[in-house]
Simulated assay, not measured.
Amino acid sequence: MQWRVRTTLPDRPGLLARIAAACGEAELNIVGMQVFPGSPHVTDELVVVAPDGWTDVQVADLFEKAGGEDVVATRVSAGAPDDAPTRYLAGASEVLDGGRPVEEVLRELLGTETPDVADYRGHDVLDLVRRDGRTLRVSRAVPFTPVERSRAQALLSLVGDAGFDQPLIAPTDLGPSPMVRDAAPADLEGVAALHERCSIETLYARYQVPLRMPLTTRMARRLVQPDHGHALVVQSGLDLVAHAVLEEEQGRWTLRILVEDAWRDRGLTTMLVRQGARVARERGLERLTIVSGAADDRVLRAVGSAGFVARVERHDDELHVTLPLSPR
Rank of each mutant, 00 (worst) to 15 (best):
R311T: 12
R6K: 10
T114S: 11
T172P: 06
M33S: 14
V209H: 04
R266K: 07
R75T: 07
V259M: 11
A26H: 10
R281L: 08
L194R: 05
L174A: 09
S177K: 06
T217F: 11
E196F: 01
P81K: 07
E247V: 05
R252P: 01
G190V: 00
R256F: 04
G53R: 05
V138H: 04
L325R: 10
L323Q: 02
L156A: 07
Q58K: 03
S177W: 13
M213I: 08
H320N: 02
P101C: 06
P214D: 06
E103K: 01
E189G: 14
E318N: 00
E318W: 05
F144P: 10
A17E: 12
R131A: 04
K65A: 15
A152M: 05
G293C: 13
D261P: 14
L223A: 01
V321N: 12
H243K: 02
S77Y: 13
D239T: 00
D182T: 13
A306H: 04
A66R: 03
S157E: 15
L232V: 00
L272P: 05
N29K: 04
D227Y: 06
G307E: 04
L258A: 12
G122Q: 09
R181T: 02
R181H: 10
P185S: 07
D173I: 00
P226R: 09
V224C: 08
L323P: 01
R314G: 02
R256W: 02
G237P: 06
G163A: 02
V57K: 04
P81T: 08
D182V: 11
R149F: 08
D132L: 04
V259W: 13
